[in-house]
Design a protein around this nucleic acid. Structure first.
Length: 660
RNA sequence: GCCGGCGUAGCUCAGUGGCAGAGCGAGGGUCUCAUAAUCCCUAGGCCGUGGGUUCGAUUCCCCCCGCCGGCACCA
């Protein structure tokens, strides 16, 4: 039996689960169920990523330890997966001991092979300003205070990512299926081709993480830590027998925002440690809500529970898989959710089951009829063709297409009934055989539909299965054994309630909205907002400078180091080759400064002239797009896209005045 | 700015060098087994704009417009 090991991302515990996490996990669950029906020995891993600064901060503001905080959110994820009956086989938490050991294992292998080096941030440092200086004055002094600079070295461990450029490219070349879909693959390709820089894989500024082996000042980079959970979750460094059996992963299912970590860094980390690479990384798109990006700051994040509880888990699964063209972005709206439910599930599959079962009850006393031996099977070719196309689609993650194939069979069954009119046949005792044949064929096609739909509609398929009087679990059915004639004549059916009762649209939507409100209000742990708006799922990979430590408070002296002055914009123009930045000439009283500001997408240059702004005048100069910037214009950062809003005054403030 | 993708019926999307398709929605009709379900008929859509290649282009090429993504750039 071939094994199939698939993973969802290890979800970051700085936020509660929403429809995006749920979508990924539902897709994974569907693939797992589908693969089992194909006869694979499936291992399905999910879990939580619990280290890093954001968790540290969120815990602090919640007044608990990071681990307590992580415990809480991690449990919430598991509770939700259980509620939705998502049947993962393994759940890994990055705070588990076995995981920590695995990370050390992998890291040491890479280090022993010479792919990790103790690097140093090397540069100039101003002791009095406590500031790393990128660009000193021409005399080699501090641009802020003018004092002499010291050369310093800040310890950091680096991973030799640059050395893997060629091997990665070759791997992509040799395994075109490694990154899916195609568009994502191209993006990764062009990213890698543009050249890779070594990656800092340790931090000294963060405490909440896995300590660096034999150097406890450092904590291991969160992504190195998180990605390794795909291995620690199946025994790496702990249960080698299991690990050997399960690894490498056959599929890492992820969202498109974390493709780089999975398609570039992760394979490089594995190459460095000489471990086998995963077979496939598949990135899906994002759900928008009624056309808008979902984000916390917009308050339009959709939770899964309302849909699941009003329409049923299967309805949610069906919608998510049917509505999104896999790989592209999809639009989630309650209106189309209920629309799909009523038209495809209630009127389609549910109604078909209902009419077939009723006629079996009325005409054959609730027993499967014996079709006459000579009766032809009108669906003989059709169902095979549909099953084939369905498999082809599901193998390619084209769930929407695969579902359409199944629904063609539902439509065929409905049409068949309309054509053969079993209710008329029933009126004529001489046509009893015909009636038996028609109802048998319809019920049998329904059985096949139930089997094919099982991975997406596990509960409903099981229900239909039982209603048809079939025994055992539909999940143990193997697709390769699927054949016509599974219903045994004389077996009793069990017509029960409708599988998908039709709902009144407005009412259903209202109930879901109320429920969402309620869940929100109940306020499970309210994680602290991240410092910057935007997708919170992706910790910045930048190998930047350590952030200020401490309790977050600064002294007035610290603040006074920042020299803010009133400036007036004398001119503003766009910079060729840069669509986000403007070149401003700003009068700050003593001089006119050239300042580059990232506001080009929101301000017309012409309208800025004459405007009074607040300028940080003692910032180290920096070149942007080849243009030197001597200072910074202060602006608020607003909304999910981080729109800048320039700070200004309501009363007259002379140019050059200092702010404090 | 560089790289890539997209722009087809009200909506969501298929599709091909040679009469433009599906599902949903909407309109009309029908059966009555069924969950006011089913089934049948109905969309006359400049296949984004302009140009080129071709006997012929929605499908190939170029320009433009619009939208989306990746990268660089938001001191």
């Amino acid at each position: 039996m071939p094994k199939y090991y698939l993973t969802t991302p290890i979800y970051y515990v700085n936020a509660r689960p929403h429809i995006g996490h749920t979508y990924t996990t539902i897709v994974a669950d569907t693939i797992a169920r589908y693969r089992r029906m194909r006869g694979d020995d499936v291992v399905f891993l999910t879990g939580t990523d619990e280290h890093g600064q954001k968790v540290e901060r969120a815990a602090k503001s919640a007044g608990v330890t990071p681990l307590q905080y992580a415990d809480r959110i991690s449990a919430e994820y598991r509770r939700l997966w259980d509620q939705l009956d998502l049947r993962y086989d393994r759940f890994i938490r990055t705070t588990e001991w076995r995981h920590e050991r695995a990370v050390h294992n992998l890291l040491l292998k890479a280090r022993d092979a010479g792919h990790i080096y103790k690097g140093f941030y090397e540069g100039l440092y101003c002791v009095s300003d406590e500031f790393y200086v990128d660009e000193p004055t021409p005399e080699g002094n501090c641009p802020i205070c003018g004092r002499a600079l010291e050369k310093i070295r800040e310890e950091n461990y680096y991973f030799k990512l640059s050395a893997f450029t060629d091997r990665l490219l070759k791997h992509y070349e040799d395994h075109p299926e490694f990154i899916q879909p195609e568009a994502r693959r191209n993006e990764v390709l062009s990213f890698v081709r543009s050249g890779l820089r070594d990656l800092s894989v340790s931090r000294t500024s963060i405490k909440w993480g896995i300590p660096w082996p034999d150097d406890e000042k450092h904590v291991i980079y969160v992504w190195y830590d998180a990605l390794t959970s795909y291995m620690s979750g199946v025994g790496y460094g702990d249960d080698e027998i299991q690990y050997e059996k399960v690894w490498p992963a056959d599929l890492h299912l992820i969202g498109k925002e974390i493709i780089r970590f999975h398609a570039v860094y992760w394979p490089a980390f594995l190459m460095a440690a000489d471990e086998p690479l995963p077979r496939q990384v598949v990135a899906h798109g994002w759900w928008t809500f009624e056309g808008e990006k979902m984000s916390k700051s917009r308050g339009n994040i959709r939770l899964a529970q309302p849909a699941a509880s009003v329409l049923g888990v299967d309805a949610l699964r069906y919608f998510l898989l049917r509505e999104m063209v896999f790989g592209q972005d999809g639009s989630f709206s309650l209106d189309s959710l209920v629309g799909r439910y009523n038209s495809d599930l209630a009127n389609g599959l549910g109604n078909l089951a209902s009419r077939v079962l009723t006629m079996l009850e009325q005409n054959f006393g609730g027993l499967i009829p014996e079709p006459p031996a000579a009766a032809p099977n009108p669906f003989a070719d059709e169902w095979r063709e549909a099953a084939r196309a369905y498999q082809q689609s599901f193998d390619a993650f084209a769930f929407s297409q695969g579902l359409q194939e199944i629904w063609k069979l539902v439509a065929s069954a409905d049409k068949y009934l309309a054509d053969t009119k079993p209710w008329s046949l029933a009126a004529d005792p001489a046509r009893r055989d015909e009636l038996a044949s028609v109802l048998y064929n319809s019920a049998e096609l329904l059985r096949i539909v139930a089997v094919l739909a099982y991975p997406v509609l596990p509960h409903s398929a099981d229900k239909i299965w039982a209603q048809l009087g079939l025994r055992g679990s539909i999940s143990s059915h193997r697709l390769e054994n699927l054949s016509w004639g599974g219903l045994r004549p004389s077996d009793p059916i069990q017509k029960g309630d409708a599988v998908f009762p039709r709902v009144q649209k407005e009412e259903a939507i209202e109930r879901m909205e109320q429920m969402e409100e309620q869940i929100r209000a109940e306020g499970a742990p309210k994680p602290a907002e991240p410092a910057k708006p935007g997708p919170a799922a992706t910790p910045a990979p930048a190998a930047g400078l350590p952030a200020a430590a401490g309790d977050g408070k600064i002294s007035i002296d610290d603040f006074m180091k920042v020299e803010l002055r009133v400036g007036e914009i004398k001119s503003a123009e766009r910079i060729a080759g840069a669509d986000k930045i403007l070149r401003l000439m700003v009068d700050i009283g003593t001089e006119v400064r050239q300042i580059v500001a990232g506001i080009a997408q929101f301000y017309e240059p012409e309208k800025l002239v004459g405007r009074r702004v607040i300028v940080v005048v003692n910032l180290a100069p920096r070149k942007l797009r080849g243009v030197e910037s001597n200072g910074m214009v202060v602006a608020a950062t607003v909304g999910p896209e981080g729109r800048p809003v320039l700070a200004g005054f309501h009363e007259d403030a002379p140019v050059g005045s200092r702010l404090k």
